[in-house]
């Protein structure tokens, strides 16, 4: 089988795209998380000069195609004198795009913490930093992790867009091989399986993080079991000491 031999020959070339894909996803996530927090806090601010620009960025990036955003940054910005290398352009667009979606997750999570928590913290004289990082955030994080992990998985697959700005990721390499081989089906099956495997790993990582933040928030879940931690306190079950 000629095709199979060719496939085997090209396999290492394609798989070399995996670290590139992972690198883009990782860097974009490093951009997305701080961007998401800044946008969320900006949007929640009572000050118009903060919440208006934050809202604008969020709606701009959620409301237009990521591919067009990438082309804009890579092909149009150079006309305005800003030339970014492909990796920087890809990481920037994926990061801010994903950060815009994630900012709404953060906003929802922070708003879900009961108002009484903020009031108690205020009444006890805690500083604004303490109130945010030690009272509100630890209670909001467990709510944010599952949708965060959704965002991570979505973004991992969106990294394939960077193949269109010359980055040699998994998709880029697959496309190259496919166009030089007659039969592309086996290559695209392989690519799907690789993305699927990577997503599965990310999903597991998400469950792992979820277990950690839940544990710190006073709830426990198992890595593979029900995602709903039991809210029934032990004393209600007659296990109190």
């Amino acid at each position: 089988m000629d095709d199979f031999a060719a496939f085997q020959a090209y396999l290492p070339f394609i798989l070399k795209g995996i670290p590139v894909t992972l690198l883009v996803a990782f860097l974009a996530m490093c951009v997305a998380i701080p961007v998401a927090f800044i946008l969320a806090l900006g949007r929640m601010s009572p000050s118009r000069s903060l919440n208006m620009p934050a809202g604008f960025v969020i709606e701009l990036f959620r409301g237009s195609s990521s591919l067009v955003q990438l082309f804009w940054v890579f092909y149009v910005l150079p006309f305005f004198g800003l030339e970014l290398p492909p990796l920087a352009a890809g990481v920037f667009v994926l990061g801010v795009n994903s950060g815009s979606y994630m900012s709404e997750i953060i906003r929802a999570g922070l708003n879900a913490v009961p108002a009484g928590q903020r009031e108690a913290a205020l009444a006890l004289g805690f500083s604004p930093q303490y109130r945010f990082f030690r009272i509100i955030l630890p209670q909001a994080l467990p709510l944010m992790i599952p949708p965060f992990s959704n965002s991570m998985i979505t973004m991992l697959k969106f990294t394939s867009l960077v193949s269109l700005v010359t980055i040699q990721d998994l998709t880029f390499r697959a496309n190259m091989v496919a166009s030089s081989m007659g039969d592309s089906s086996s290559i695209y099956i392989l690519v799907i399986l690789v993305y699927f495997g990577l997503s599965l790993l990310l999903a597991l990582l998400g469950r792992f993080l979820e277990a950690i933040v839940n544990k710190r928030a006073g709830r426990s879940i198992s890595l593979f079991g029900s995602a709903n931690p039991s809210r029934i306190p032990p004393w209600a079950l007659g296990r109190s000491g």
Partner: peptide, 24 residues
């Protein structure tokens, strides 16, 4: 408060200790 508003991620001791450490 009527609804207690204890910090659920802290033990009873930590709930009482934290204002002593961080506020005063």
């Amino acid at each position: 408060f009527q609804q207690f508003n204890l910090f659920p991620h802290m033990s009873a001791l930590e709930n009482v200790r934290e204002p002593l450490v961080h506020t005063i």
